[in-house]
Simulated assay, not measured.
Amino acid sequence: MTAPSEAQRLQRLHALGILDTPGDDLFRGLAEQALGVVPGTTIAAVSLVDAERQWFKTIIGLGAKETSRAVSFCSHTIETEDCMVVEDATKDERFANNPLVTSAPAIRFYAGIRLAGGVGALCVIGTSPRRIRPGEIEKLSKIAQYVDIQLLSHGVLANVMEPKA
Score class of each variant (00 low, 15 high):
residue 95 F to L: 10
residue 83 C to A: 10
residue 24 D to C: 05
residue 151 L to N: 08
residue 100 L to D: 00
residue 137 I to A: 03
residue 133 R to L: 15
residue 138 E to Q: 06
residue 54 Q to F: 03
residue 41 T to P: 00
residue 32 E to R: 13
residue 160 V to S: 10
residue 14 H to V: 08
residue 44 A to R: 00
residue 93 E to A: 13
residue 113 I to V: 15
residue 39 P to F: 13
residue 151 L to C: 07
residue 139 K to R: 09
residue 126 G to W: 02
residue 155 G to M: 06
residue 78 I to Y: 00
residue 76 H to W: 01
residue 63 G to S: 15
residue 130 R to M: 09
residue 95 F to W: 08
residue 121 A to H: 10
residue 15 A to R: 15
residue 1 M to V: 09
residue 52 E to D: 07
residue 133 R to Y: 10
residue 19 L to Y: 13
residue 73 F to R: 10
residue 11 Q to F: 12
residue 141 S to Y: 07
residue 76 H to T: 05
residue 20 D to M: 12
residue 51 A to R: 05
residue 131 R to S: 13
residue 106 A to Y: 14
residue 136 E to D: 00
residue 152 L to T: 11
residue 109 F to N: 06
residue 164 K to S: 13
residue 75 S to R: 14
residue 3 A to Y: 06
residue 12 R to E: 07
residue 141 S to L: 04
residue 50 D to M: 03
residue 52 E to L: 05
residue 69 R to A: 12
residue 32 E to I: 08
residue 48 L to C: 06
residue 155 G to D: 08
residue 144 A to D: 04
residue 9 R to L: 03
residue 74 C to I: 14
residue 116 A to T: 11
residue 101 V to R: 03
residue 107 I to F: 02
residue 83 C to Y: 00
residue 10 L to S: 02
residue 7 A to L: 10
residue 103 S to M: 04
residue 7 A to G: 04
residue 154 H to R: 07
residue 42 T to S: 04
residue 55 W to R: 03
residue 70 A to L: 09
residue 127 T to A: 07
residue 39 P to L: 10
residue 83 C to Q: 04
